[in-house]
Design a protein around this nucleic acid. Structure first.
Length: 287
DNA sequence: TTCTTTGTTCCGGA
DNA sequence: GTCCGGAACAAAGA
């Protein structure tokens, strides 16, 4: 579930609580995430201070005081939660009350002086990987990623050149992390609706005005979602247990058989599968 | 019981 | 070699 806005929210919350804090201890309850956590991981990070947390696409990048790194990907259901060490409870206590089974999926605990950072992941599709400063430059997860959609490098001139290299549906191009990095199924569906482009249209047949519109839609949607704390479907919470509200503004995602929200369109939201993923679009205004 | 859902990687066919 | 589509992966709720 977490796409770029949700990872961005997670980053901001974590920055507030654990940057400049030293990892005093690490407890691994379950090493079997998408990739098995390195048995040496604990020895490599304990006693190191987290000096920076940044985001690249859907990855969180932690820089340690010795110049080495670890990255965390939340997969589909991963979360990073902040707990108060002394009281042994989450900052927002209502969080546990509404999610009683959650503790079962707490896999890793990072212990700081006053706080605990918990990696929780129901489906265990996320992962944590350590890289020394030299290896990090060659990190296979990060090296092939496309442009950050909210950066100035993500502009019409560059995108119109790049898109010529793909011969597949525009939806699959947007889902392809080597083109634009960080978009997932929800935001791609929404962006294509806003720019009135059918998801199955070959990307080579998206003309210049449409591409401009699409680019603007992507940026607008991501910014709006970040402003609203991300989307909370299938229970995304930020690291303090708070929920986002962008899901209330979805125009097509999950709206199969509803009327198009464009007042004079008269179309119907259809659902098809593209690249194995649910795709929602209006049968009239997205051509 | 089977289907759906999510992001990424891997594999086979063109 | 390259590109693209689809399967696989885990787990839970409908």
């Amino acid at each position: 579930m977490p796409e770029l806005p949700e990872v961005e929210i997670t980053k901001k919350t974590l920055q507030k609580h654990v940057v400049d804090q030293t990892i005093q201890d690490l407890q691994i309850k379950n090493r079997n995430l998408r990739y098995k956590i390195d048995i040496e991981f604990k020895n490599k990070v304990v006693k190191k201070k987290i000096v920076n947390i940044s985001r690249r696409s859907k990855y969180l990048v932690f820089l340690l005081s010795d110049g080495n790194y670890f990255i965390i990907h939340l997969g589909m259901s991963g979360r990073l939660l902040i707990a108060n060490k002394k009281q042994k409870k989450f900052l927002d206590t209502s969080f546990y009350a509404s999610h009683p089974a959650i503790k079962k999926h707490n896999h890793v605990y990072f212990l700081f002086k006053k706080k605990i950072l918990i990696y929780n992941d129901t489906r265990r599709f996320g992962f944590i990987k350590y890289y020394n400063s030299k290896e990090f430059l060659n990190c296979q997860h990060l090296i092939n990623l496309g442009v950050e959609p909210l950066s100035s490098e993500c502009n019409f001139a560059q995108l119109s050149q790049k898109i010529k290299k793909y011969n597949k549906s525009i939806k699959n191009v947007l889902m392809d992390q080597t083109c634009i990095a960080g978009l997932g199924n929800i935001y791609v569906n929404e962006a294509l609706f806003l720019s009135k482009i059918h998801p199955e249209r070959n990307s080579l047949r998206v003309d210049a005005p449409e591409l401009k519109k699409l680019l603007q839609a992507i940026k607008d949607i991501l910014k709006k979602s970040i402003r609203l704390g991300g989307s909370t479907i299938k229970d995304f919470h930020n690291s303090e247990g708070k929920i986002g509200s962008f899901q209330n503004y979805f125009k097509v995602y999950g709206r199969e058989n509803e009327k198009c929200t464009r007042s004079r369109c008269g179309g119907m939201i259809k659902k098809i599968t593209i690249g194995g993923r649910a795709s929602f679009f209006c049968n009239i205004c997205q051509q």
